Computed example of a mutant assay.
Amino acid sequence: MSRIVRFHQLGGPEVLKIEERPVPEPGPREVLVKVSAIGLNRADVMFRTGQYLAQAILPSQLGFEATGTVVCSGQNATRFTAGDVVNVLPGFDLGRYGTYAEHIVMPEEFLLPQPAGLSNVEGSALWMAYLTAFGGLIEAGRLLADQWVVVSAASSSVGLAAIQVARQVGARPIATTSSSDKREALLEAGAVDVIATREESLKERLLDISGGGVQCAFDAVGGPAVTDLADAMRPGGTLVIHGALSPEGTPFPLKVALKKSLTFRGFVYTEVTQNPITLARAQDFISAGARAGFLRPQIDKVFPLSDVVGAHRYLESNRQFGKIVMSV
């Protein structure tokens, strides 16, 4: 038998239940993986509460990321052999698959070899954050060396990944966070400067730090602050919005966009995972960065799978700096 986390109704962390099932068998082009670590994401909370893009079919499993060891492969699955250490690539059908379990079956196209130099815990925290950062900054944002980029919600796993990705290409990241409590940690993480948005003027500080404006914004918040970001952009700049943390509506600053020829761009990580050419570029970039030590997931806390409810409560607290992981 093997443990799996399921929920039978939408709701808070307490709806997550640890159940037992027989070890699953892989079907055609599927791989059976013994899981060692599971990466948690804010999207897990949204899926559990019915607010995600995909809706849960109850009872439902969940989870986007994991590291594990290949046990065996199903018919016509030829990419991996028993004993290979693999990472789960997000983007699969959440109605059929999930990573919160001791053993998982996954389509082989959603598995990647774990990059050299990473622990299993770090591997489980890699792909969602760094695919989002790479796709948003490099592919959508067209970020180049020596350019200024502002990263909002910078203490999240995606925000910290974005700081590292920007540094890897030689750009200059400015981090934003709600208060100054995390300022020193963000500077140590690679930010050139930090703006505490509840204590400082976002627009004025961006213009001052960058000496006239930023070329790119990587925004997880949306809401009214988008107008400040637009005002602080250089002509021809790109504002990439990849999240909607703000409960308020997001205005479109039309006159500023026209005056500065700005590009406003929505982005979701599946733009990378669903395009084999883009995914190959992302895999090469991320793997090379991990090998060289430029890209390294920031792990905040590791919970055991048995405390999945506690892990989700901590995830919802927003106290973390970086990634929350569960060990199996």
Rank of each mutant, 00 (worst) to 15 (best):
F267W: 05
T78L: 11
P276D: 07
S155F: 00
I195H: 04
S157W: 07
I286R: 08
L295K: 04
V23G: 04
L131D: 07
R234W: 09
E30D: 05
L94C: 01
A220H: 06
M1N: 10
G95W: 00
E30A: 03
Q55I: 02
F264W: 13
A66V: 07
D231P: 01
P253A: 12
S306Q: 14
S210Y: 12
T238L: 07
A232Q: 03
F110T: 03
V45F: 00
M128A: 15
L245Y: 02
Q168G: 03
A54I: 10
S60I: 01
D93Q: 11
V23L: 08
A101K: 00
T81Q: 15
E184K: 00
I174T: 10
G266Y: 06
F321Q: 00
V86K: 04
E188D: 13
V150G: 06
P26C: 08
V31C: 07
S306T: 14
D44A: 05
F294W: 12
S178G: 14
H103K: 06
G236R: 12
F64W: 14
F110N: 09
N275K: 09
G237P: 04
T67E: 11
A43P: 01
K259W: 14
E248P: 01
R79F: 05
F294T: 15
A129T: 15
F321P: 00
S36M: 02
T278P: 00
E65F: 08
G212Y: 14
L58Y: 09
R172V: 11
G322C: 09
R3W: 09
A66S: 15
L239W: 09
F218T: 03
G95N: 05
S36D: 06
G310I: 05
M233P: 03
I241L: 14
S287W: 12
E19I: 08
L258V: 15
T197H: 14
K203A: 14
G136T: 08
E316M: 11
K203Q: 15
I38P: 00
T81P: 01
L305P: 02
V86Y: 06
A66L: 04
V169E: 06
V88E: 04
P115M: 10
R79S: 12
R172C: 07
F92H: 15
Q320I: 07
L94E: 01
F110M: 02
F264N: 05
M1S: 14
A145P: 06
A171P: 03
G236A: 12
A185C: 03
V45R: 01
I286N: 07
Q114F: 02
V70P: 01
G223D: 04
L305S: 05
Q283V: 15
R48W: 00
Q164M: 13
E109Y: 10
V226M: 07
L112W: 12
D193Q: 12
F294R: 13
R142W: 09
V272N: 05
S157F: 09
A153E: 03
A166N: 05
P251K: 11
V33W: 05
